[in-house]
């Protein structure tokens, strides 16, 4: 069987999600039986512009990034957005809290004029995306599932219920019972409540469920006496670029009307 050529690319990110692949251990050997990696900056020096599947980590934060991702999209038959930065904007989205000019000067100081910058966008906010692997970092069992789906030409459905569903099945004591705020109730499942299983809270790195119950969630915060700002700040950490989706949705709805 001819191996599928896979290329890994990174935009604005820490490349930690790609490191997850390098850290897969024995399962990586099975993956490599199936694919030929032609681009992967973290683990090899070779480069190629001939690939079938592009695995893209990072968010798009510069005009140069826009051009680069468009070129990748034009070559790749399948594009996988990989990791929170790519799928929802991730921590880079925090940039959108500031005036663009201010934040550019703050980061690049005297050299700011060399760096053209745009508000942070997730990959699908620039080019069409075929598969999403959410998470910061990605949950490797889910990545493997997505990879298998992509190679079989099947869709992968990202779970659209809350992290609580998986957390409960893992029989964790609810963070709210411990008096700790957790974003599980509004965050998409699919990570097998990885963080909570290990004693941490859910930070919302997989993005929000599509239909969060706003009124109900607000009641819950009131009940546990959690100020709305806490949740907003926590959500801000990964989900700021969601505003781009909401703006796009609003625009589409207006056009329909």
């Amino acid at each position: 069987m001819k191996k599928t050529k896979v290329a890994f690319f990174d935009f604005s990110c820490c490349e930690g999600c790609q490191l997850q692949v390098a850290n897969m251990g024995e399962a990586l050997l099975d993956v490599l039986d199936l694919i030929e990696v032609v681009n992967f900056r973290e683990v090899m020096s070779e480069r190629s512009d001939d690939y079938d599947v592009a695995v893209v980590e990072g968010s798009i934060t510069s005009p140069h990034g826009v051009e680069r991702i468009k070129k990748i999209r034009s070559i790749a038959k399948v594009l996988i957005a990989y990791g929170s930065c790519a799928t929802i904007g991730g921590v880079n989205g925090m940039k959108n809290n500031f005036e663009l000019e201010d934040i550019r000067k703050y980061v690049y100081q005297d050299s700011a004029h060399h760096f053209h910058t745009i508000p942070t966008r997730a990959v699908h906010q620039v080019v069409p995306v075929d598969y999403f692997v959410h998470g910061c970092p990605v949950y490797i069992p889910e990545f493997v599932k997505v990879l298998k789906s992509a190679l079989s030409g099947l869709p992968y459905r990202v779970p659209d219920d809350a992290v609580c569903t998986e957390c409960k099945l893992n029989e964790n004591v609810c963070m709210y019972e411990k008096g700790i705020t957790c974003l599980g109730p509004i965050t998409r499942a699919g990570c097998n409540s990885w963080c909570v299983n290990n004693g941490n809270i859910c930070y919302g790195c997989r993005g929000m469920v599509t239909n969060p119950a706003q009124k109900g969630q607000k009641d819950i915060l009131d009940r546990y006496q959690i100020p709305m700002e806490w949740i907003e700040n926590k959500m801000n950490m990964y989900n700021k670029a969601r505003e781009n989706d909401l703006a796009e949705e609003k625009k589409n709805n207006e056009q329909k009307c």
């Binding site: 219920d161 569903t165 409960k168 109730p185 119950a213 009124k215 109900g216």
Partner: peptide, 13 residues
């Protein structure tokens, strides 16, 4: 309807 957040806890337990 206004209170439930559909976390699924009730059915899972």
């Amino acid at each position: 309807q206004n209170r439930c957040v559909a976390c699924g806890n009730c059915t899972n337990v």
